[in-house]
Design a binder for these strands. Structure first.
Lengths: 187, 187
DNA sequence: CGTCGCGTTCAAAATGATTTGAACGGTTGT
DNA sequence: ACAACCGTTCAAATCATTTTGAACGCGACG
């Protein structure tokens, strides 16, 4: 039986930071606990077990299990083997940018892409109306809506390009992006 | 009594588009109805009354009122006077980029900024521990956490720079940003 | 004035999301 | 084979958000 430290309460800074990250992630569309669990792992020198996390964050066993498996699905947490331990242990992905670009790529991009498709679809239908409707008022309205939707579509495409740029920049490292942004700045 | 068209059901494309935008906005942290209401206004040739919206989207009077006032607070919808009408009418802000950069600037930025402050705060506390704790293990741990939090801080600052870049680019027009992104691309 | 139409507010209801904890199934060690 | 231990699952419970609709206040009109 290896000697491991007992589940210990979080330091105040750990609690504070994981809370902040939890909030950010929640704001960002994930569950708050995902952020908190990830942060505790990220700040821990050693891998932690589900039980450690349960104590650190006062969660039920089910919650920990579900949160960890969700985090694993996003690839931001890894399961590690610890010699002579029965339990599973976990570590956080420490390559922050890799995490983020994966999320951008999988989550945001599909969101934006499906919006783009819907806009294109609507445009096609409106064009059909513009060509076939007998009523001039109807045609005019279709025309106007087409123009507006075109704008939305352009914006969505811009968004997608931005995501692509971020992700492809980030694939390697955050540096180039940072340099670009610095160059962008007024002073 | 001016002649105005009766509240009319949405065209299928209008319904579809407002739904998509509603989803995007929800995903994005707003209420779905905000997106839907905005879209209906955006696609309408004339300003619409609260009642029109109520019919178009099947909302209660209260919901329409609250949604419109929230949208007004974000400056994405404007109230307009229509000659000889008792009711209030509304139009959508059509400068898409202006809307978005306002949201970035007010909402995201404050989120990121407060995270940055919290990280800085945590760092200060950890440094104090690193200087004063008698226990070497504690000092080592504080050291490590400091490094990790430093990373988070750097990332948050990068995010803020990105937001600044977007917003300042967008203040004028979307064009420059678009050009930059195109230039960025691999081919 | 009194009434009507309209917009707003807010408590209550509905809906939606998250969390719990007990039950289950698999594994290890005896 | 059994007991102890762990992780997972999922229905039920809790908690948070959103929506409703009735009550109110204001201004316009007769």
């Amino acid at each position: 039986m290896a000697k491991r430290e007992k589940p210990r309460a979080l330091w105040p800074t750990e609690a504070a930071v994981s809370d902040v990250v939890g909030r950010l992630m929640e704001f960002w569309g994930f569950k708050r606990n995902m952020g908190r669990v990830w942060t505790v792992l990220y700040l821990s020198p050693q891998p932690l077990s589900a039980e450690d996390l349960r104590h650190a964050l006062q969660l039920s066993s089910g919650a920990v299990s579900m949160t960890l498996s969700e985090l694993s699905r996003w690839g931001v947490v890894r399961r590690v083997w610890i010699q002579g331990e029965r339990k599973d242990f976990y570590t956080a992905e420490v390559q922050l940018w890799r995490m983020i670009s994966r999320v951008f790529n999988e989550r945001e991009k599909s969101e934006v892409t499906s919006a783009i498709e819907a806009f294109e679809d609507a445009l096609r239908k409106l064009e059909a109306i513009g060509r076939t409707s007998p009523d001039p008022a109807t045609r005019a309205r279709a025309q106007l809506q087409g123009e507006r939707i075109e704008q939305l579509l352009e914006l969505a495409r811009l968004g997608r390009r931005l995501l692509d740029a971020l992700v492809s920049t980030g694939k390697v490292d955050v540096e180039p992006l940072a340099r670009f942004l610095l160059g962008q700045q007024r002073s």
